[in-house]
Design a protein around this nucleic acid. Structure first.
Lengths: 204, 204
DNA sequence: GCGGCCTCCTGACATTTGTCATGCGGAGTG
DNA sequence: CACTCCGCATGACAAATGTCAGGAGGCCGC
């Protein structure tokens, strides 16, 4: 019924990208029209080749899969995006779906399974790995306000309050208040543990 | 000249392992005799199949590549270990070499290149990715004493001093002294930034 | 065996935090 | 319009952390 599905493959790891390209090419109805090793390159390739489905790694240098997906959605609405990831953090899934991504799978699936999912997505359906979906639902929505999240993010690399205050253009007292409320909302022992928790749940 | 090289492939990501298996099988002189998705499984498979070369992912559930390599060295001295990794942290390389690993490459290499390296390793030579080697040399040796490193590691998840002291069976004052000296040695602003730095350089 | 380094401790102090009460203006909701 | 959040702030206090000075014992190399 359909002709072949034209694919863009983006992953910064040569080994994996190449291997994947070979494996997917074995499927009769899939053809890889472009490959990319970075976010910007993926975008450029997509513009040049207008693939039916873009298979993007979540973590790439330059711009991550979700950012690329956002741009693609605007420029090539017909191109479906499928995100593949090693570390399935709940928050990423949410961000990805908001960016209009049509599929989200961990790298633990087999190539056959991936091929099927590519077809599913190409047919206009969505596919989200059940386990990741369950995690995302379990993690729920972020209880943090925008400011709390922002301050927490600035605290992520261990910067002292003074520096956070400066970078966020807030008073030190305010920063401490936000951190304090974030910490208590997350049930953490201190801000650093809070950062860790928020990271795990994908809230930062 | 030599017969075929018998390989064990271990990586927790099905997609990658499968793809890799297929690609490497295309090489006439390479044959995959076993696959594993975790550290312990890799060990069990190695015992059962006694491969010539074990290609291990650095990060796997159960036991990481280096731990597996250590065990393999003891149990199957004839089996050469080649570590493949996504995130090339300098410290890992050092630990790996100490564990008797014969090769260490990032996943950014191509499959052809990997095949060559497998042959190199099988022939009894060593191979370390030049870029990773350069990084490792640049990062140098850890300036931390064993205790400092231990305490810093316990501080990694944001635990308060009291907890660290308990877990390390030290007094709180001692813990603070170790942390303090570690922080100053690393030139960090506080212990959390120090943890980050030490992580980056592979010293924890 | 002496000096140097590491480990482990104590105690005191300055600084950085976390916590709480409180206030004010704006946005959104009922 | 009253009410409730959020953003932003102050100030004050308690607790955790960082910094110094010092001291004792152990191990190693010279």
């Amino acid at each position: 019924m359909t002709g072949s599905v034209r694919l863009l493959l983006a992953d910064d790891e040569h080994l994996i990208r190449g291997a994947l390209a070979t494996l997917l090419s074995l499927e009769d109805d899939l053809v890889i029209v472009a490959e990319a090793a970075s976010g910007p390159e993926a975008l450029a390739m997509a513009r040049a080749h207008e693939p039916d489905v873009a298979v993007l790694d979540l973590q790439m240098p330059g711009a991550d899969g979700v950012k690329v997906a956002t741009s693609l959605r605007a420029e090539l609405p017909g191109c479906k995006v499928l995100i593949v990831t090693s570390h399935g953090r709940p928050g990423h899934l949410k961000r990805a779906l908001e960016a209009g991504v049509r599929g989200f799978v961990p790298k633990t699936v087999s190539a056959q399974r991936l091929a099927e999912i590519i077809r599913t997505v190409h047919a206009g359906n969505r596919y989200v790995d059940p386990e990741l979906a369950a995690d995302a639902i379990a993690a729920g929505d972020s209880p943090l306000t925008a400011r709390e999240a922002e301050v927490l993010e600035l605290a992520a690399d261990g910067a002292p309050v003074a520096e956070i205050a400066e970078r966020a253009a807030l008073s030190q007292g305010t920063v401490r208040n936000y951190l304090s409320s974030a910490v208590s909302k997350l049930g953490a022992e201190n801000r650093h543990a809070a950062v860790r928790l928020a990271r795990e749940r994908g809230w930062v």
